[in-house]
Design a binder for these strands. Structure first.
Lengths: 253, 253
DNA sequence: TAGTGGTCTAGACCACAGC
DNA sequence: CTGTGGTCTAGACCACTAT
């Protein structure tokens, strides 16, 4: 029931009550909540009010609604842990790059599709790569899946001058991935910088990543540098925040 | 106007149309949108439908609603850039710790409030610190502000054995901050690990950080290790995703 | 005081899931 | 077929902002 004198909106009281019941284990993970019409009865408010309360919990990522089935408590997602060691030369030597290294370490079935195109660099990419805006870049647009589920989007851009006549311009970059091909072509990787942020997904990203409710995405922009400091690649990654944790470690200085 | 035959819900059509007008510059950043009642007229739908469309944009962080004033296009936020150099010994030598180093670098007026308490470590913290659950930890609960605006929450926990009789148990830890005091006490910092993720804020966090609409938070769990590998501190930070970008750089290996 | 967003009602019909 | 969530209407009243 709802306290009409408290000044707190009814839908917030309902949301708070359901949130508390969920965290107290009254509705365990995976469990179905009472139907909206049952909640209308038990809280004594109208259905739009119940729906607004449920929307609060959906935006918080606590529940998901399934059309025709009900409202379910969202189980915690399996977390992919990424650490910088995924980019080590040693990992490249063993297999085909960062994503496959993660798959091997965590035992999921990886698959990915790649589209390759050639474009003129926009201002932002040109700044990262220290080339002129409009210079030609090779764009590798990747969708990565784990057990069929899309888990990562990545758009990698490299100056075309570094990729011509290499397998980087092919769908299959071969063992060790694009970084191994850069090294083959006389561009030894010297260092990486990753810029990490988070935001709400665009509608396109939400569709591609099958994001329900209020799940944010983690964005990582990685820049790979040659050992003389020349930028070789900028890679924009988008990951569902509920399925990833990224770790970095370093020695104090 | 809305196409009733397309199968796309009316509120999504309205949201998509407004989104497009905003990104096309028809409504520039900071601009007020037409009022809900005006939108009712121009799209030919009911007010709840308009409100649902506006809620989509609010969840995406594109607009904010201000009671009694209107709906406004959200300007991009000033970004705080954090890099690992904020934790260098050299930065500690210059001032009073990571947050003040950021303030000095970026020229905002920093302020913070600290609450100190002593607790028994929970399982998660005990795992990080490699101590027994229930062992006493010193908890430093900090709220950090830039020009008066809350920009960061941080809860730092250290085994009490390392903090007894040090300024870490005081509100003011002195020059160089808690890490400098640990080093004074014979615990030289050897390395750091940071685990980065993102999620929607809890209601409490949304209030504390004054988050409107669908702004996610970036979470960073930092563990500081002594040079012999002993964990010294675990620090859970919560930052508004629209105001922060965190960077890490390292040499390829 | 007028205009704004915030909340809420009591319905209606549709689309999907599952028996 | 029944029950579920998804969408939508046409109002109503409240609280806040600005003039």
């Amino acid at each position: 029931m709802v306290d009409r004198t408290s000044g707190v909106p009814a839908f917030r009281q309902v949301a708070a009550d359901l949130r508390e019941k969920i965290s107290a284990g009254h509705y365990p993970a995976g469990e179905r909540l009472p139907s909206e019409r049952e909640l209308v009865e038990s809280y004594g408010v109208s259905r739009p009010t119940i729906r607004e309360a449920v929307n609060v919990l959906r935006t918080e990522g606590i529940v998901t609604a399934e059309h025709g089935r009900g409202i379910f408590v969202r189980p915690p997602s399996a977390i992919h842990r990424l650490s910088r060691s995924r980019l080590s030369r040693e990992a490249r030597g063993r297999n085909q790059g960062a994503f496959l290294a993660d798959a091997a370490a965590r035992g999921f079935a990886p698959s990915s599709s790649v589209k390759i195109r050639f474009e003129e660099a926009d201002q932002r990419v040109a700044d990262y790569l220290r080339i002129d805006p409009g210079a030609e870049v090779t764009v590798r647009d990747r969708v990565m899946r784990a057990n069929g589920l899309v888990v990562q989007l990545a758009v990698s851009q490299l100056p075309r001058a570094f990729t011509r006549d290499t397998a980087i311009e092919q769908v299959d970059t071969g063992p060790g991935g694009a970084y191994a091909r850069l090294e083959d072509a006389g561009h030894p990787i010297g260092s990486f910088v990753e810029h990490v942020g988070a935001r709400m997904p665009t509608p396109d990203e939400a569709t591609a990543l099958q994001l329900t409710g209020g799940t944010p995405v983690v964005t990582i922009t990685r820049v790979a540098y040659q050992d003389d400091g020349t930028p070789l690649e900028v890679n924009d990654m988008v990951l569902p925040a509920d399925r990833y944790e990224v770790s970095y470690e370093w020695a104090a200085d």
